[in-house]
Design a protein around this nucleic acid. Sequence first.
DNA 1: CAAACGTTGACGCCGCGTTGACGGCCGGGC
DNA 2: GCCCGGCCGTCAACGCGGCGTCAACGTTTG
Lengths: 218, 218
Amino acid sequence: MRILVVEDEPLLAETVAQGLRRDAHAVDVVHDGGAALERLDVNDYDVVVLDRDLPVVHGDDVCRELARRESAARVLMLTAAADVDDRVAGLALGADDYLPKPFAFRELAARVAALGRRARPAAPPVLERSGIRLDPHRREVYRDGRYVPLSRKEFAVLAELLRAAGAAVSAEQLLEKAWDENADPFTHTVRMTILKLRRKLGDPPVVHTEPGVGYRLA
Amino acid sequence: MRILVVEDEPLLAETVAQGLRRDAHAVDVVHDGGAALERLDVNDYDVVVLDRDLPVVHGDDVCRELARRESAARVLMLTAAADVDDRVAGLALGADDYLPKPFAFRELAARVAALGRRARPAAPPVLERSGIRLDPHRREVYRDGRYVPLSRKEFAVLAELLRAAGAAVSAEQLLEKAWDENADPFTHTVRMTILKLRRKLGDPPVVHTEPGVGYRLA
DNA sequence: CAAACGTTGACGCCGCGTTGACGGCCGGGC
DNA sequence: GCCCGGCCGTCAACGCGGCGTCAACGTTTG
């Protein structure tokens, strides 16, 4: 795991860093808030161990800035103040965890491990092909960057075409995937949906017909 | 946010639950570890407030089981023992945070909020989007700088929409996150809440309907 | 005890999905 | 070469479900 330790007191900083390295983490150390933000610009850390009382730029401000950037790094904040109000304030700033000084190193290590333990939820794959971007999770479709509002069936059909990755998809296959099991195979609902899809997706055309076979994207 | 409180002492359990409900969370309560695991099977909680000393199934075992299942729920463990060794042990089991009894309710609330935030990596404490500012900590909402008083359910629903960051959220998902388990999925309480939200938030409209799918912010 | 809130029933509207009808295009049979 | 039939695109019309809204009721809250 990649860890940044931000602590102005040199001895404490090194102690923490060495302890974490013993747990097989890659640790960088800086001694003020400004330097911390620079590093966070360049490198992709998993966890930031952040002292609250920092010279130049205060720990709170580092925290706020990270939140603003929507950084993926998680913050464990260290602070001298042990009273409840300060603890609450720290968490409210966007820190992910909080540890009052003085602390046992083992506890810091345990909290760092807890922060890094769970893998970030894997984002569902965004389907993309020939100018079409479809995000299954957000239920959005873009054509060359322009948002295209689609109905449920249109969305489902387009998703199937994209999943086919350029292969032809028969009307029967589409019926099977995008409609429920009691769909009537003798109707032309698929044709209608394809028609509307083509219109909404605009020019140049991306949905092509493979006569006698089905439809193909690209 | 959807929360499960696991605490065998009835009075404490209810106090905690009601306090969290006042913060516009949907809270379910159970009194032993076995029941907790059953609920966790069925519902999708964001945070579990877990007493360590539990009848039937011990809190540690609940924790282990959750880790085994790779549950996405975050665990805040409550325990009578305040010494460092126990804290480290709890975290090692897979708990995400740890709070020794006795505690101030405000601190529990703050830690629950922090854990909920962590579920979506680095989400800033104040949610903001398209002219809407929502402060979970202060429980306040502003539309273009003007204060908008919201009821608990309205607040909870808006918070979920904001957390989705522009993605569409189905009525089922809203029920899952903003209502507790006695909610009836066949009614239109969600529609009503959305209706009132729209009115209070004023023009131009920010809550859009995705027909057949759900609601989307912006 | 009053007011705010959450929930429910009823109702009307709008749009999606579906269907029927029709016409153009192409290939095959006589 | 002509006609016929299948395949596909397009238009218009219909039914139904989803959704917004009003009014009223039970419940919680200060």
